[in-house]
């Protein structure tokens, strides 16, 4: 009789352990974190389809259907921010991959490996600096009153000073330049790594056959890099509707006259939320970005999967 409770509790404890194990306990903090940080905001996208009424709670306002979206897409802003986001991304993808391959090849061709290491480490440095400081560095060059360009370079060439922070024409080039400056180290590192992975025997055979360096690059390195390039480009295209908020907001110093060439979806959402107090438009633009972004990422992933299963996200 006395042993009965013990035999009954044993399987129960075991069942408890099955239902809730120490491994579950290990997962709880991260699961709860992502619930709040990511999943509740996903549900929160419903506010784009609602009228905000904080007196009825965060998600309690009445439904308005697609009204916010219809209104958003009637404004010229919608077209402008979409165009800017896509065009900047296309320029970044093209130039970054082209230069990344070029620098990767140069690094792999340099015989003094210690020098290669120094170059590689140095060009990675800008990646680690906050965009606030990068914006300040850019200001050091472009400021009207004290920038190097206006105070030293242009006077030396006998040219008039340029007020960069109110001249939109220059900014597509400036922003592309800053983006390349920050990212070239990473891009070239990726390509350098895949060049190093190419079988050396191919080059030795080509050398024996009398192929020049240029021919080796043209007929061995480039074709072997092609899959990597294709993969990286497709993945970047998957993110074509998102932009680096800091680059487009901080680097132009949030300058009003530049809005036409610096407004991307992310800066629009931010300005709507934090500055213009226009939550309906801001949330509609954000929801538009989230949904279109999901579609492009899934499409990109689908194409990556067609080419190489192992590189796909799922």
């Amino acid at each position: 009789m006395g042993t009965a409770p013990a035999t009954r509790t044993m399987p129960l404890a075991k069942r408890m352990r099955r239902w809730f194990s120490p491994l579950d306990l290990m997962c709880i903090p991260a699961v709860v974190y992502l619930l709040f940080n990511n999943y509740i905001p996903m549900y929160g996208l419903v506010i784009a389809f609602k009228k905000i009424d904080f007196s009825k709670g965060l998600y309690g306002g009445p439904w308005v259907g697609l009204k916010n979206f219809v209104y958003l897409f009637k404004t010229p802003d919608a077209w402008l921010m979409t165009r800017n986001t896509i065009l900047y991304n296309l320029a970044f993808i093209l130039i970054m991959n082209f230069l990344g391959v070029a620098v990767g090849i140069i690094l792999s061709e340099i015989l003094a490996k210690r020098a290669t290491k120094v170059y590689q480490t140095t060009i990675l440095l800008p990646q680690l600096i906050s965009i606030i400081i990068v914006a300040n560095l850019v200001y050091g060059f472009l400021s009207l009153s004290s920038g190097v360009v206006n105070k030293t370079i242009l006077p030396m060439l006998g040219l008039e000073a340029i007020d960069f922070y109110s001249s939109p024409v220059y900014w597509p080039f400036i922003l592309t330049g800053v983006n390349i400056w920050g990212g070239i180290g990473y891009a070239s590192l990726l390509y350098y790594a895949s060049i190093i992975g190419i079988d050396r025997e191919l080059y030795d055979a080509a050398y024996v056959d009398g192929a020049s360096k240029f021919r080796q690059i043209r007929y061995i390195t480039m074709p072997m890099l092609k899959p990597t390039v294709v993969m990286l480009v497709i993945m970047a295209v998957g993110r074509i509707f998102s932009s680096n908020f800091g680059l487009f907001y901080q680097v132009p110093m949030n300058s009003g006259p530049l809005i036409k060439v610096t407004q991307t979806i992310d800066t629009y959402v931010f300005r709507g939320l934090m500055q213009n107090n226009n939550i309906p438009m801001s949330s509609a633009a954000g929801a538009y970005q989230s949904v279109v972004g999901l579609v492009t990422v899934l499409l990109a992933n689908y194409f990556v999967r067609l080419i190489d299963r192992d590189s796909a996200l799922m």
Binding site: N38, Y39, P41, G44, L45, G286, L294, L298
Partner: peptide, 16 residues
């Protein structure tokens, strides 16, 4: 993994 594919963006996160 799903949080890498889809996100609510700034506005819902800020409000949350």
């Amino acid at each position: 993994f799903f949080t890498m594919l889809f996100n609510g963006g700034l506005v819902p996160q800020y409000l949350m």
